[in-house]
Design a protein around this nucleic acid. Sequence first.
RNA 1: GGACAGGUGGGAGAGUGGUUAAAUCCAGCAGACUGUAAAUCUGCCGUCCAUCGGGCUACGGUGGUUCGAAUCCACCCCUGUCCA
Length: 308
Amino acid sequence: MIPAVTGPTGAGKTSVAAALAEITNGAIINADSQSVYKYFNIGTSKPPAAMRKTITHYLVDFINPGEQFSAGDFVLGARRAIKKIRKNGKLPIICGGTGLYISALKDGISPIPASSEIRDKIAKMTTAVQLETLKKTDPEMYASIDKRNPRRVARALEIFRITGLPPTKALKKNFIEGIPLKVFFLSMPRTELYRKIDERVEQMLEKGLVREVRRILEKGVAPGASAFSSIGYKEILEHIKGNVSLREASEKIKFRTHLLARKQEIWWRKKRAVKINVLGKNPMAISAEIVKILYNNELSSGEKQEDI
RNA sequence: GGACAGGUGGGAGAGUGGUUAAAUCCAGCAGACUGUAAAUCUGCCGUCCAUCGGGCUACGGUGGUUCGAAUCCACCCCUGUCCA
């Protein structure tokens, strides 16, 4: 089975996946929604260049900052990468913190793409009108949808416009089946995790996050580019504009990263994942633990997955 | 020593007699979420019991005015700025 290493930011996914790749002769497929972007290196904690020389990485550092990348793109790309890695006789390892991406790969996804053209049109309607339209086209979806969440509502309508079918039906059509994945969730106590996150944010600044943002802007990347919406970049942008001090920006980055970490935990709390406590353990020990579980599970058919 | 300004819940910060357990923001906590997901959205957030709801303690301290005070008065303590 394919292992997927996930967990909150700062838990050490990158080094664990690297260690795992070393002992299993594996290649890594990135499942982090921000690390796909080019030039955004420090703030996204991409796997370092040296690591990428010895271990093959897929879906990292290959999208232009202005372009959109989505769960569907990830699934398609990951499936291709898995095939290729297997052909080379290696073990594919998924690594990243974007729960939706990993879940989509594992459980499948419907192949309805995003259309910025349609999205723009829908955006011109008020939410009330959007809801009205949805109510008429798909009462079932209307009943279950979070009506206060504009993105949900807009996407439902988008699906309708693209397929001409009620979203509930469209989502079941031509479904891209999932791939069996064994999800390993690296975990550590909150207080410890928050401490590590804060430390890491300081390190990012020392490494020159501000400089990186300046360079990206000099390249002509628009401040509104989707890659700039990620934690660390948004705040530094504000600092460069002169709206906040560097200190304020770094505080904000820390707090927003805490929130992110919590969201990442919540995502897997009720889903099947093997929780691995990483506090005080080194990457090699952790990856050895993962190998052991992977190997045991392949021998015994019984599922022994813990809840988080 | 003198003159102002101010002390509000974990933090910032509204509130100048009742509808205020006290706006708002931040932090914290609990969630939703199948193509923007590091996004978007929701709930809780003094304390105790509790289903609606109810009790208790709260706006530096102590006393007072009042049917009623975070809000008015007196004194005291502390903080900031300015003058000596």
